[in-house]
Design a binder for these strands. Structure first.
Lengths: 348, 348
DNA sequence: CAAATTCCTGCAATGGGTTGCAGTGTGGAT
DNA sequence: ATCCACACTGCAACCCATTGCAGGAATTTG
């Protein structure tokens, strides 16, 4: 059936051990022998069976990746970065979509455990208790969730929010609404934190609406709630919600940005494609995916060398100003109310 | 480290064989013994190592899934369906993104082969020659590519094109442009075929532009080419291109649908969210993903029973009329030029 | 009561590859 | 010529689980 190490060994008139060494520890094999072995292996199309190798080495060269919803373009983008980085390290990736279900998340982790060296959890929806239950099953790395003792990649959402609020303040907005995301989301907590902080420093009054599911439809729903208030700008938990707001606002005949400014989060591809193009906080999605895989791989290396201690990497954000934000319609003439310092953005 | 079958065996005072049988062939084990074993297994958190099992059974309970570009929302949607279906059958999925590179596709297949029971290839970009090289490596199932002797899932793009052209004809369009996709894409060939056929039956003149990459930016580029012609409607290879056209048309001050009608393909989520909402040909993305996995799994079952013969499943499409299509501005009064029969659409 | 079943369980081989240890052969030093 | 170190290579055990086969106990049959 499949060509094994023994077939190659036989063809090349050496033992299986030698073939194995020719691949894994080439310096232990005489040059002439190694070349012959590799030539034969190439001819017969031999490729080592990773599962079998993993059985004995304890390393599978696979990693798992778990996301809440592939329907949110944020995750395919992260996934793309993660997969590319894994490929660089010659690792394959197992993918699972939990459909926002924490229990399914747990059981998918359990199912994966034996086939991977570690798992990257994106925006995990697990409860603290569930989380503790899986923490020692394998090596976990979290993206956008704060967990101590393990590698984590965080996105500085609070700073993104600062940029967004300062932008609105500079335009002259006095009162804005935040459309809150899932309560269990760390990103949402950070964005709220950033909102409160920059609300204080800029003097912009902020109210909170929600929570809303991170979906387009929830944004449509939210738009009407926003219109029932007297805010002149709205900050959405993510672009999907912001796009929904834009859509519903258009239906209601509210001009964006003339009558209402809208800001999203994530900078998914379509934020730039809609009308008006959405002002949004860019998140380095592929970088984050890459970083998470990198941290996981580093962690595995370090662990095998006896080191410990969690690693953390924080990625910056960048407000992308497009056409969904403008000064509020009713506004005093330029009164110098803009923020004192528009600080330099961090790099990606 | 990890808990093995022997740990359970020891704890339950039986042999490893018995533990194994308690899981795989319960009826061979006395009820009392089985219950004790399962209880112990549960207590110590034993989960069979699938890689080890696969080594001896020849089945890994994993499948691979390869897509050209996760950045195109079509593929995450397919992926989501595929993963859900695989989960039903208790299979895990390996994911790989080829970044539209056929050579990478080949090597990713090779890397996966030993760890999966079969692979689903979505819109494979491989040449015929490359394809033949990998066909006997493992069990392959194709989505949107015609290959003989293996299971395939096809989407009836030609019929989708018919619906689109008849729609335009009914609106009174006389001359339309098709923005061609990747030359190696089977879907593109089908759409062209459907175009030519329905061009004949409806009397609508069709010109072809391109080929274009299936990306937003290519659509922006295409829009100007379209404006240089005298067509009143444009059919894009996919929604990404259509959205790009919409975007550029808006920039050029061309009103859609008043001055130009635009139709896309795929019905990605954002087709409904943009302005104007895009008329597009719906493709059952998740169903297609599910179907591909189902066919692959069936095929593997059948094969182990000695059956052969490729299976094929064709999925229907459905034109979704939104607001990017309308009668052409300059048009004779209702002249009965509409198609004779607007046939019933096929189900998903 | 002995013999034949039936039922359950354990032994040992198996799958594909890795690795500690021992054995072979070569060349250099004495 | 003898001894030794060193570089290669092969043997066999091992990773974890499955499965054909055989043995032992319990039950049925004659």
């Amino acid at each position: 059936m499949s060509v094994t190490i023994h077939d190659v060994a036989h063809q090349a008139c050496v033992s299986a051990s030698t073939v194995s060494r020719a691949f894994t520890t080439p310096e232990m094999v005489r040059t002439s022998t190694r070349e012959r072995v590799l030539r034969v292996a190439d001819q017969v199309g031999y490729r080592p069976n990773r599962a079998a190798r993993g059985l004995i080495t304890g390393k599978t060269a696979n990693i798992g990746l778990i996301v809440p919803d592939l329907g949110n373009p944020l995750f395919p983008a992260i996934l793309k970065g993660a997969q590319a980085r894994a490929l660089l390290a010659d690792h394959a990736v197992f993918l699972a979509d939990t459909d926002e279900d924490p229990e399914l998340e747990v059981s998918l982790i359990q199912a994966m455990v034996k086939q991977v060296d570690g798992i990257v959890l994106c925006s995990s929806r697990m409860s603290e208790k569930q989380l503790r239950g899986v923490l020692d099953l394998t090596d976990l790395t979290f993206l956008n969730r704060k967990v101590s003792g393990v590698p984590i990649v965080l996105i500085d959402s609070a700073d993104g929010m600062r940029q967004a609020v300062e932008h609105l303040a500079a335009l002259g907005h006095k009162k804005v609404a935040y459309l809150s995301g899932p309560p269990t989301s760390w990103s949402n907590r950070e964005r709220r934190r950033g909102l409160r902080a920059s609300s204080r420093t800029t003097g912009v009054e902020a109210i909170e609406l929600g929570p809303f599911a991170p979906k387009f439809e929830a944004g449509q729903q939210a738009a009407d709630l926003v219109l029932a208030t007297d805010v002149t700008a709205v900050l959405a938990f993510n672009d999907l919600i912001a796009l929904g707001v834009l859509n519903r606002l258009a239906d209601r005949g509210v001009a964006v940005p003339a009558e209402m400014s809208v800001i999203g989060f994530d900078d998914i591809a379509f934020a730039a494609m809609c009308t008006p193009p959405l002002t949004t906080v860019f998140i380095p999605k592929e970088s984050a995916g890459r970083a998470a895989v990198e941290l996981l791989l580093d962690w595995l290396d370090k662990k095998s060398l006896g080191h410990t201690g969690g690693t953390q990497r924080t990625l910056g954000t960048q407000l992308i100003v497009r056409s969904s934000t403008a000064p509020p319609r009713v506004r005093a003439a330029s009164d110098g109310h803009a923020t004192k310092s528009v600080r330099q953005p961090k790099g990606d």
